[in-house]
Computed example of a mutant assay.
Amino acid sequence: MKSIQQLITFILIFIFLVGCQTHSGDLSGTKPVSSNDFFAAFPPIGLPITIVDTNINSFADTTVIGIKAMSQFIPDSILNHFHLNKKAIIHPVGSIQKLKEKYLLANFSYKNNTILGVFVFNEKNEFLAAKNLVQSKQNDGYVHSVYINKEPTFLISREKYSADKKLLYTRTGWVYNSGNAFMVAMNDGNEDELKNNTIINPIDTLPEKNKHSGNYAKNSKNFIAIRDGKTPKLYHFFIHFENKDNCNGELKGMMKMVGEDKAVYKEIGEPCSIEFTFKNNEITFKENGKCGNKRGIQCYFDDTYPKQKSHKIIKKKRT
């Protein structure tokens, strides 16, 4: 009975010592690191998993890996994208084992900034590819995250709410391919759509010091911007309008004052002509020539807009 207890004790001690030997290798990089010690430092990750920029450090192991140790398995040219600084501290986050590849995730931290990266190795523990996934400190107003499924696909996202409480988001799914590189597998988002729906004023940055310069608008979809020309009698203008019948018009040009409060737009060789009248802090514009190539068929440049206090109102998004 005693011999059996001694045998069990011996086996337990042996297992403990083997375990310690496996995980207690020197990972500082001051001397060669065995591949067994290096890869053992990355525990398996349960998938799926989501890592957000605000909790990126909570997923890391307490083990510290020296940059010199990492460079024994990953080229310096790749690590330079993650170093942040030569004093960066590297913590293993975990590993994903597939049939032909192994993915290692690690945090690179310096001061208050941390970058999470993924590194791919083949069956022979040879480096194949790498990609940065999420960063803790970007200060751009977005919440950044990465969602990793069992394939694995790395879905990198950024989200924020606009001033009018709309969720703006961009999501890109990345996968490793056989060409030893990460490729985009999917794109999703609404930011490009919203940007395409933004009315851009092309003369917005020009000076507006002269008498009639400024912005005149009914709302963000119906406005005219007027800016200083080369002389007090010349003004740059940009008109944009959208009416209820889904008839839109847009025109950029130069108007010339022909009286104290009247101006005209007329380009040589073009039939389009518009008359402008300034009165009571408003502008009235009326189409006198054919401007059909600048607007819809069933609508005209013909309206009155009040002058605005600030031209900042012009940059609005369409709904």
Rank of each mutant, 00 (worst) to 15 (best):
I224V: 01
I203V: 06
A181W: 05
M255H: 02
R171K: 02
Y265N: 01
N180Q: 09
S213A: 11
M254Q: 15
N219Y: 02
E260P: 09
T231I: 12
I224P: 01
K209P: 09
D228Q: 03
T231P: 08
S178I: 11
N210R: 15
E260G: 13
T172K: 01
N197K: 12
T231F: 10
M255L: 04
I203N: 06
N201G: 08
L194F: 11
G189C: 00
Y265I: 13
N201Y: 04
I268G: 10
N197Y: 04
N246H: 13
F238D: 10
G179C: 03
F223G: 03
V184T: 07
G249T: 06
N246E: 14
D204E: 14
T170P: 00
C247A: 12
K209H: 15
F238K: 07
Y169I: 03
Y169Q: 00
P232M: 03
K244F: 07
C247P: 05
E250M: 13
L194R: 14
W174S: 08
C247K: 07
G249W: 08
S178N: 09
K256W: 11
C272K: 00
N248G: 05
K262V: 15
F182W: 01
I239V: 12
T205N: 14
H212V: 10
D245N: 14
H212K: 11
D228T: 05
E208R: 15
Y169A: 00
A181L: 11
T170C: 02
N180Y: 06
N222F: 01
I224L: 00
N190H: 00
N222K: 03
K221S: 11
G173T: 00
N180R: 07
N210P: 06
G173S: 02
M186G: 04
I226N: 05
D261Y: 13
M186A: 10
K266T: 14
P202S: 01
N177P: 05
E193I: 15
I199A: 05
E208Y: 15
N243I: 04
P207R: 05
L194V: 12
K252S: 12
N243W: 04
L206P: 04
T231M: 07
K233C: 03
I226K: 09
F182N: 01
F241Q: 01
R227V: 12
A217T: 03
G189A: 00
A185H: 10
N196P: 02
F182P: 01
K209W: 10
G249S: 01
H236C: 02
Y265S: 06
L251Y: 06
A225D: 14
R227Q: 09
F223N: 02
E260C: 06
H236K: 08
A185R: 09
S220Y: 09
E193V: 14
F237S: 06
D261N: 11
G253V: 04
E208K: 15
P202E: 00
C247L: 10
N219W: 01
N177S: 07
D192K: 14
D204T: 10
G269L: 05
D228W: 10
N248K: 13
E270V: 15
N219P: 00
G269C: 09
E270W: 09
K230D: 14
N215E: 07
M255A: 05
K230A: 15
P207H: 04
N201H: 05
D192W: 11
L206S: 12
N210L: 15
